[in-house]
Each structure stands twice: as C-alpha cells, then as structure tokens.
Design a protein around this nucleic acid. Structure first.
Lengths: 204, 204
DNA sequence: GTCTATAACTCGATAGAC
DNA sequence: GTCTATCGAGTTATAGAC
C-alpha cells in the first residue's frame, strides 16, 4: 500500500510530487512552483532538500529509468528458452508499463534531448549480457528450433511491439476514438498477441 | 537541391533554423536566441516575421505534422489488397522517416504534452476513411485471404514496427553500440522485414 | 525545518535608430 | 527590413526570520 500524504516525510512528498510533474511536463516544461504546490509545501523547501531543479530532476530521472531498464536486461539473462524469454518479457513488460504509461515517452524524450548526459549513468554498472543471449540464439538456430534471424531485428521487434503503443497513446486514442479503458483493454490483449506474433515469425 | 543559406529569404532562413531547433529541443526547450543564431540573424527579426514564439512553433509543428500524418491515411485509402497496402506503407514510411529521423519523437512528444491543442488542427479537414479499410479487412477475412484479426492490433503492429526504432534510436544505438550508419542500414533491412513479418502473421 | 520576501537571472517581446 | 538596447514577466535560487 502506498503511504498516505500525511505519513510521508517532506522528502518523500517532494519526490512523489516531482515525479508526477516531471513525467507530465518534462524537465523543461516543469516548474518548481508546480512541484511545490503538488507536494503541498513551500518552494524554498525544494531547494533545502535538493539543491537545484537539475539535481531534483536527475534524482527522479534515475529512479524512473532504473525501474524501466532492468526488465530489458532480463531478456538477456535467465536460463530459459528463447520462446519462454520472449513470452515472459512481453507479458511482464506490458504489465509493468500499464501501471506507469507515461514513463516510456518521458524517458525516450529526455534521452533524445540529452543524448550523452544521463545515458551513461543509467547503464553504468549494468552489465548487459548481450554475448550470452547471442550465443543462445546461435545455438537454437543450429538446433533448428528457430529460423536464422538478425538479433537486432528481433530486439527491435520485441521492444517496438511492447512499447510503441504507450509512446503513441494520445495519437492512437484520437485516431481510433478509444478512451483510456478501451486502450488498456487492447494492451491487455497484446500481452498474448505480441509474443504469439513474434514466436510465430521465428519458429521453424 | 536545397537552397544554400545565401539564396534563402530571411523568412526561409528562419523557418529552416526554427525547424532544426524545435525538432532538437521541443517547444519548451527551444530558445528564440538559439533560432536566431542558427539562422544567422537577429532575435528581433524573428518577432518581425512571426509575431511570437508560439506562432513560430505552430507554423513549424503544422508543417512537420502535415508531412508526417498523410502516409498513415494512405494505409486506409488506395485500391489495392491489404497485403499490398502493408508492403507499400512500410517501405514508403520507413523511407520517409529515414530522411527526417527526429520527426516522430518530436510529434509524439508535443502531442503528449498538448493532448488537445494541435491534434484537432492536424486532423481537421482530413477524412480518414477508417470504415472503408475495415470493410476491406472484413471482406478479405471472409474470402479466407487473411486470418480473423483485430484491426486495432494490426494498426498498432504496423505503426510500432515502423516508427518505434526511430523514437528509441539514441537508446538503441547505445545498447547495441551501433553508429548512425549501422542503424540506418538496419532500417533499410526493415523495409522488407517488417511487411514480411506482418503479412506472415495474417496470411491464411 | 519551514516559511516569507526578495535577489538574481533568463527569456520573450518591444521601442526606436538607421 | 534589420539592427541595438532594453523592458518586464516569469523562474530559479537564496537570505533571513521564526
């Protein structure tokens, strides 16, 4: 259960509020006043706990990004077949993002504006076992379990099909006339549809 | 051939510069000074030609969005089979975006921040013949040319696979270690891979 | 620690000379 | 039309009382 506002320390209140505002408006669009209002405290207190807007943003960005990236890494780890990996990943990832649908566009957009700044911080210390996954692919191709495929194309397919709908949600909802609930129902379907589509395409 | 900087009128120079800066930094992140510098003219001149930053942004946004959306509409129009539509669309769309890879994230991000403001302007006057496309799908399903599918899922699959790689390009390049040229080579491949994957999945 | 008040600064916009 | 100079609103950040 999430702590009620009263029970939170000022620092927690600020972090919660900052996350909400930054996710909605991005670094450039967010105002310290908005965050203070959202947290129900004074603007000066933001600077007392976090020295500057930039520091506060960095804290939030790293927190959000660190919750967003690891699942991708799981795709490379774990000791299961490629098919199982794909199934598990799609289901869990779509599930996770349904809880926080604004996260992908936020991250991708900020990375886009700061191609260098934060990127390294996110991935530093994370050892993505790409080699291991590539080896597994090669092995299963040799065993004729899966068709010969470009690993990059497979990675792009999985990420695209899981993430893009959330990135484009406002546009999709407008084009199709769906409301939020209909959209989420479609994404619920996709937990099964996406792995099915991908596995079909690589199964021998 | 693109006009050299010298041959452009001040207005053209401003538009070119504004497009570059807005695409890179978004509405909130862009500075009128940046645009003036990029155009090699004075800040005051921006206001002489375009009354305000907002007007200038609107001009650029509509220009960019109007080049971005129509191809989606072609997916619904034209008098070809569903398979042909998918093939043509993927090839042409990926091709177009390779020329302007920053456009998708720019548009999606601005729409995300202004869910109402511009959306209507883009789509007003455009009659998206959804009904016609749905009818065609139904017909080809009945004729047993394609499997029964949810139209929304098909639309999401096509758009996701074509657009997402560009939206996530900085992240993808970092994870995989590709440079811009390698990335574009992968996208060149995708012009064939994506329609193949989608058509395989719906063919009876 | 938390607040009010205000300093310091950024940036869009305008006035006015040429 | 194009420039320099400057204004004024809006924001981040700090000083200082409690």
């Amino acid at each position: 259960m999430v702590k009620s506002k009263k029970d939170q320390s000022p620092e927690e209140k600020i972090l919660t509020a900052a996350k909400k505002v930054f996710l909605a408006k991005g670094m450039d669009g967010a105002r310290m006043q908005d965050i203070a209002d959202e947290a129900g405290i004074n603007k000066a207190l933001l600077h007392y706990y976090f020295r500057s807007k930039e520091k506060l943003f960095e804290t939030i960005f790293l927190e959000v990004a660190n919750a967003f990236v690891p699942k991708v890494i799981k795709l490379f780890e774990e000791d299961t077949t490629v098919f199982e990996k794909i199934e598990i990943f799609c289901r869990e990832y779509i599930n996770q993002i349904m809880q926080t649908p604004y996260v992908p566009i936020f991250i991708l957009n900020e990375i886009n504006k700061q191609p260098e700044a934060f990127l390294k911080k996110i991935l530093t210390g994370r050892n993505i076992p790409v080699e291991k996954f590539l080896a597994q692919l090669q092995k299963e191709i040799k065993q004729k379990i899966i068709k010969p495929i470009e690993p990059v194309q497979l990675l792009l397919n999985v990420l695209s099909l899981c993430l893009f709908p959330f990135v484009a949600r406002p546009m999709i909802q407008l084009i199709t006339g769906m409301d939020k609930n209909s959209f989420m129902a479609v994404m619920e379907q996709r937990k099964k549809e996406v792995p099915k589509l991908i596995i079909e395409s690589i199964k021998k």
